[in-house]
Simulated assay, not measured.
Amino acid sequence: MTKAERTRQFIIEQSAPLFNTKGVAGTAMSDIMQATKMAKGGLYGHFESKEELTHAVVDYCLGALGEKITAVMNKQKTAKGKLFAYLDFLSSPENPPLQGGCPMINFGIEADDTNTIINQKVKKGMDWSVNRIADVITEGVGNGEFHTSWNAKEFAIKLFTMMEGAVMIAKVMGNNNNLHIIIKMLKTEIESQVI
Rank of each mutant, 00 (worst) to 15 (best):
V72S: 06
L98C: 11
D113G: 05
P96F: 06
Y60G: 01
P103H: 00
D112E: 14
E67C: 03
N95P: 04
D113C: 03
V72L: 01
P93N: 14
Q99T: 13
Q76W: 01
A111Q: 07
G108T: 01
T114F: 03
E110R: 08
K77T: 05
I69L: 11
E94R: 13
D113I: 03
C102Y: 08
E110C: 12
S91D: 14
P93C: 14
A64E: 15
T78A: 09
F84V: 07
D88R: 05
E67F: 06
L90E: 12
S92G: 09
I109E: 15
E94L: 10
G100L: 05
M73E: 11
C61I: 01
E94Y: 13
A111T: 08
K68N: 11
N115R: 08
P96W: 08
C61D: 04
Q99Y: 07
N74D: 15
F84W: 00
I109V: 15
S92L: 11
Q99S: 05
F107T: 06
N95D: 08
A64D: 14
L90V: 14
L98Y: 08
G66I: 03
L62V: 04
P97G: 15
Y86H: 09
K82P: 04
P103C: 02
L62G: 02
V72K: 00
C61F: 02
T116Q: 09
C61T: 05
D112V: 13
Y60I: 01
L65F: 12
G101K: 08
E94P: 02
A79K: 01
A64V: 14
N74K: 14
N115Q: 08
Y86I: 04
D112T: 11
S92H: 14
P103E: 06
A111C: 08
G108S: 08
T114C: 01
G63C: 08
T70D: 15
F89V: 06
G101M: 09
D88F: 03
P103V: 06
L62E: 03
A71G: 10
Q76T: 02
C102G: 11
K80S: 10
K82Y: 03
Y60H: 12
D113A: 06
G101F: 05
I69C: 04
E67D: 14
M104P: 03
F84M: 05
F89W: 09
E94Q: 14
L90I: 13
P97W: 11
V72C: 00
D113K: 02
C102E: 10
P97T: 11
I69Q: 03
